[in-house]
Design a protein around this nucleic acid. Structure first.
Length: 362
DNA sequence: TCTGGGGTCCTAGGACCC
DNA sequence: TCTGGGGTCCTAGGACCC
């Protein structure tokens, strides 16, 4: 007999705040109510660079969505309320919400600022009780924070997340065990976690449009085309997703900072100055977190959006600003010899370890 | 019609060691 | 003369997430 009687079915809940950043802005500024609110880069009268971070549903009426160039948003709706992101505030609100959620289960996993997974298998007997619990969560967040969220309930994280996205805002979607495949089948493959634009296109090319198509496809062909990911896509399309809530402890693997120039530049003094500045910022975060780094990577984006990286692993771990700056400068030189205009420059350090218990390098 | 900034994970080739 | 196979580290690029 497969499985066992003692194997308890999992009930996983995914909570996603509705248009989090713009919802907070609306809450803080009652006069924003019922007007399109767009949080993101400065539109600078349509000449601004950068993208929309979040926008409310009134702005979505104008076909504006997150990730859209802010200049395009401006053309679509110049009269919207444009707000710069206030991360300090969002972080504070996020912490309050996570505190609420954590109370519902110790098996808890934040997913970015405004989403989280909860394994509530030990808290509830069945999906009916899970719905009750989800309603309580929604009420508590609304009562305490005056913000709405959407919830998905399913036997695993993947389906819970897709279910959550199925009905927004202020939604609650439940997918019970034996309805998982039926629920997934008609959805676009794009709804699947880890399938983005590129993979969607590749799947479309071989006639796979829906998750049902993917589930029915010959797995050996998927493996041939997508390697190990092909096998995973196939499993996921059948609603099989084993990952535990809060399963793997996350250790920070890298710290970086990057910045886009207001206009593309080839002025070397300006570029090196910016690079120095970025190194300083990364350095401060390294020190604050008591870390040592070994690898430095410089990223350059040219005016044509072609993006490249150069990296160098030092022979030793360091937390010295001069090591970071000297290495970054050398790496950047390789990019700047052709005098081509640059759009973005960034620095990231990786191969990290804790500097606790070590004498700091001066 | 132009495309942010913070990250993670995967792939693939080359160097090097045993 | 020519030459296997496994493991690890480094580097660069790509795809994806929020």
């Amino acid at each position: 007999m497969k499985g066992s009687f003692s194997e308890k079915k999992r009930i996983i809940l995914h909570v996603d705040m509705d248009h989090f950043f713009s919802a907070i802005e609306e809450r803080e500024n009652p006069n924003y109510k019922r007007k399109p609110v767009i949080v993101g880069a400065d539109p600078r009268e349509g000449k601004g660079r950068g993208v929309v971070k979040t926008c409310n549903y009134e702005a979505r009426e104008f076909d504006i969505h997150s990730g859209m160039p802010i200049s395009k948003a401006w053309r679509l709706c110049p009269n919207a309320i444009y707000v710069r992101a206030n991360y300090r505030l969002y972080k504070k609100v996020s912490a309050e919400i996570m505190k609420i959620l954590r109370n519902y289960s110790e098996k808890f996993q934040p997913w970015g600022f405004d989403e989280a997974f909860l394994n509530i298998s030990s808290q509830v007997q069945d999906f009916d009780e899970a719905i009750e619990l989800a309603v309580n969560i929604k009420h508590e967040i609304l009562w305490n924070e005056r913000l709405t969220c959407s919830v998905g309930i399913a036997p695993n994280k993947l389906v819970a997340k897709i279910a959550c996205d199925f009905n927004k805002p202020d939604g609650l979607t439940v997918v019970i065990d034996n309805e998982v495949e039926k629920f997934l089948a008609p959805l676009s493959v794009r709804k699947m976690l880890w399938i983005g634009e590129k993979t969607e296109n590749k799947l479309n090319e071989i006639g796979i449009k829906t998750i049902g198509d993917l589930a029915g496809y010959d797995v050996s062909v998927l493996i041939e085309k997508f390697g190990v990911m092909g096998a995973r896509y196939h499993q996921w399309a059948h609603g099989i997703y084993k990952s535990e809530v809060g399963g793997r402890r996350r250790i920070r693997k890298s710290i970086g900072h990057e910045s886009t120039f207001m206009a593309n530049v080839n002025d070397q003094d300006l570029i090196y100055k910016k690079l120095e500045n970025i190194c300083q910022k990364v350095y401060e975060r390294i020190i604050r977190r008591k870390l040592l780094f070994k690898t430095v990577t410089v990223k350059i984006r040219y005016g044509n959006f072609q993006t490249y990286t150069h990296g160098k692993t030092l022979l030793f771990f360091s937390n010295r600003l001069q090591d970071l700056q000297k290495t970054a400068q050398k790496l950047a030189q390789g990019f700047l010899c052709n005098n081509e205009k640059i759009r973005l420059i960034g620095v990231r350090v990786s191969t990290l370890k804790s500097s606790k218990g070590q004498r700091s390098l001066v």
